[in-house]
Design a binder for these strands. Structure first.
Lengths: 143, 143
DNA sequence: CTTACTGTAATTATATGCATTACAGTTGAT
DNA sequence: ATCAACTGTAATGCATATAATTACAGTAAG
């Protein structure tokens, strides 16, 4: 799976966690452990979906503008990673005589698409808020 | 996702389709569109699970020794690709002060593990035999 | 004893993913 | 009006992952 999904979830959770619901790409990148340019790319995606707004210029950054309890991981997966469970590599060969060889790619495509829908059904039950709660639980379990 | 899953499914379906339930790595590789050495590696995995037996030496090859209607894609996924939906890349940093940064890796790990169980639940309902039937349907739909 | 196979590991080639750099555009502060 | 601190985006470089290929020892049939 595409790791932009993880970055998107992490960024939204971080914004939800921060009292002012705001952070720069540098702050997010440091928290996520990646490069600010990569964060900005992912945030661009979240902005298009209306989950964050951008304040440009000095003193700017990203501002959460959605209710963390309303946004599900399914929506985030759809925008960042749809199709990513299917391997890039494709079995078979449509040019062959054999019924198996020439239809396998199509059938596996069907199967992966259905599998992805199962995944989405699960992600649809998880919100950003719930991820934040899980983080708090994980923190408590440590002590 | 790991493409060895696709190769394993394709190979088993092909063996199930062939009247003698037998084929060499060359034949399978040509049908799958990959290299015979790669097929032999995947088949080694299927042999360990008891789905095929090997006949070595001249005139040898791989022989299906299971009921295609009994073997599910879930079992195949478990042997070839378990853990492959989780991205290699990992968010956060356990060394940081921030509660979000230092627990995100663990929480995402949980989430991906649960997501994979959803996937397995779906694959558990699909057998090699059913994949073969889907191939026949796909073939029919073309005409 | 030769031919046709598998088993497995090592090597090479290619694709993908991530980090980094670069720079134009925007805004706030002085 | 100029500087400093940001975002947006594209291009480049680098590392890792994946697939193809090569190589060769081992095994069985004829």
């Amino acid at each position: 799976m595409n790791s932009e999904f993880t970055i998107a979830v992490h960024s939204l959770v971080l914004l939800a966690y921060r009292p002012d619901h705001m952070a720069t790409s540098d702050m997010i990148a440091h928290n996520v452990s990646t490069h600010p340019a990569r964060v900005r790319k992912v945030m661009g995606c979240l902005r298009k979906m209306g989950y964050v707004t951008t304040k440009e210029g000095s003193g700017g950054g990203f501002i959460l503008c959605c209710d963390p309890a309303e946004v599900t991981l399914a929506e985030i997966y759809k925008t960042t990673s749809i199709g990513s469970i299917k391997p890039g590599w494709c079995s078979g060969d449509t040019g062959q005589d054999c019924m198996v060889a020439c239809n396998m790619a199509d059938v596996m495509e069907q199967i992966f698409t259905e599998a992805e829908m199962q995944l989405l059904a699960y992600f649809d039950k998880l919100t950003i808020q719930q991820v934040l709660e899980r983080l708090r639980e994980a923190q408590q379990d440590k002590v």
